[in-house]
Write a protein that binds this DNA or RNA. Structure first.
Lengths: 325, 325
DNA sequence: TTGAAAGCGCTAACAT
DNA sequence: ATGTTAGCGCTTTCAA
């Protein structure tokens, strides 16, 4: 028969410590410009601990006009151990400054993100999948003070991925390249930028024209694409992602072709299955761990007022050499 | 030189629509027991849309005494594609009822979880790894109305997955089975339950003793495991997940063995790459759409007051037949 | 060094 | 059917 057990409030702590709410607030927030004698301080801290006091977030942010929630939007599907470590890094770094990180997993972020941002009252939103101007604007209107993962920067990054793939294949002496487009979904924008990165490199390096083909996640249809590449003299294929790359590999297998001898294949993502594909997949991974701390700092700066939150590269693409290319 | 651009408030909407704040609240929340004439309704809705009004979450939950945030605590490290899909389903189902799902990734949930729970003012906390009484209690104190930490139920489910794998292999006439344990990470608890499901089935069906072996996501070491299985007369292998299964396939390939002729291999997860593994991987998938809905319903019930939130199965395992077994 | 008091933006009795 | 009003729990001037 427990009473609805009202949550412990700051007033309770004040009473318990024999001070005013104001003092409690000062102590608990370590408010700058306030001198609290050590003794009072202890009294408050003790009382708070004794009562297991936890400020109510909603009241806090309503009063202060800002929340300490940071929202991280993650691309759909799998989250590698790598990425996971990055997230924990980021969370830890932010926590060190009193900020809480929560994540949101979603394929594409449509209207939802701004809504979610408002729903959790996030003061910063970070995304690993870049968003367009419109979304950025919406997020700001939804209350996000800092929005990271935008615009031009992202475009360049996406292209960089394609370049990395192409350069590697060029280094392998391939004369004409193919591009394996994902047959389904996948944000067209990303697909286009990545593709463009490859195409530009082909042009710059004087290779034959890039031959993009859609590739289903099914061996038989994939084999058809392979046939077409073979017919066109393609000897290297950049795939939009690792899954698509593996589909190409499966198609080649069906035709008795081998990577990289017949066609070199390179993916993107370095998914857990990549090292055990047949043959092990060469791909472009991302160095997330490294960037965790940087990113946290950027958020902090942004929140502190450093206006043009010009985010750095948030995904540092990195070639992962294995057997397929 | 934009003014700090005060966010649009409910009062703004009221003014714009020429009604009181109360009416705005009634309309926007679709408050039961209030009769709002269609015309007023439209006026308010229009004004809200015109102003791109978004209620401030903190104010809402402070006033209402409850938030519409649901926190999902995920086990550390990697998040498989299928888990990710499940999360999206859950999020969608909850969103359908006005609840927002955010996730938290962390190795173990120590003191942090209750803190985070308070920080985002979550009214429900769900965890895929069961937590103890103490944590549950702390979460409640931190403001969570509903705490779901999949207990016994989960155990049975995990075993069911193993049974499904084993039964399929038995149906293929395999006499002795092997189990491919993930070499790294993966919550030991889950691994053990899944393994147990297989072991129990082996015992019940009078097969030889199950032979579990750790399998790295690397072809060469995987081949070693394969050697050992071959030596022991194993003709069917259940893998902890699809990645591990693919590692086994890669190991077999290295030895010139074929699935399912030499050894039948079955995974868990039905990752996107599964249909394009060589050969296409037979595996156990999950009906996420269905279970996402169920879980969402459980949360809703709990929030609505239905006390003993006995959650149903959250992962409905389902055999996906392809070529490898 | 501490406290009193005025809100933050919203909901929900309680009028009307 | 709609408006008035009183908080929700906290931060933050401004006084003392």
């Amino acid at each position: 028969m427990r009473t609805p057990s009202r949550r412990v409030t700051s007033a309770d702590v004040a009473r318990e410590a024999g001070v005013s709410q104001t003092t409690v607030s000062f102590v608990l927030n370590d408010t700058r410009g306030q001198t609290i004698p050590e003794e009072t301080r202890r009294r408050v801290l003790d009382a708070a601990k004794r009562l297991d006091y936890r400020p109510r977030a909603s009241a806090r942010s309503l009063a202060a006009g800002r929340s300490d929630v940071v929202l991280l939007a993650l691309p759909g599907l799998p989250i590698s151990a790598n990425l996971s470590r990055f997230i924990e890094q980021l969370a830890a770094a932010l926590a060190g400054h009193g900020l809480s990180l929560v994540t949101h997993l979603a394929e594409g972020h449509g209207r939802q993100l701004p809504d979610l941002c408002a729903a959790v009252d996030a003061s910063a939103v970070i995304s690993l999948i870049p968003f367009d101007e419109e979304t950025t604007e919406a997020l700001h209107r939804a209350g996000a003070q800092v929005v990271l993962g935008t615009g031009q920067q992202a475009r360049a990054e996406l292209q960089e991925i394609g370049r990395l793939q192409a350069e590697h294949l060029v280094g392998l002496g391939r004369g004409r390249l193919g591009y394996a487009l994902p047959a389904e979904h996948a944000s067209q924008w990303r697909v286009q930028e990545r593709l463009r990165g490859v195409a530009m490199t082909c042009a710059e390096r004087g290779l034959g024209e890039l031959l993009p083909l859609a590739v289903d996640l099914d061996p038989a249809p994939a084999a058809l694409a392979v046939d077409e590449w073979v017919r066109a003299g393609v000897t290297g294929v950049c795939a939009y992602n690792d899954e698509t790359a593996m589909a190409v590999l499966a198609g080649m297998h069906l035709r008795g072709l081998r990577a990289p001898d017949d066609i070199a294949v390179i993916g993107v993502g370095d998914i857990p299955a990549a090292p055990v594909s047949i043959p092990p997949l060469t791909t472009v991974g991302f160095d997330y761990e490294l960037t965790g701390r940087d990113l946290a700092q950027t958020v902090l700066d942004g929140l502190a007022g450093a206006k043009p939150s010009t985010q750095d590269s948030i995904s540092r693409p990195l070639l992962v050499r294995r057997a397929s290319a």
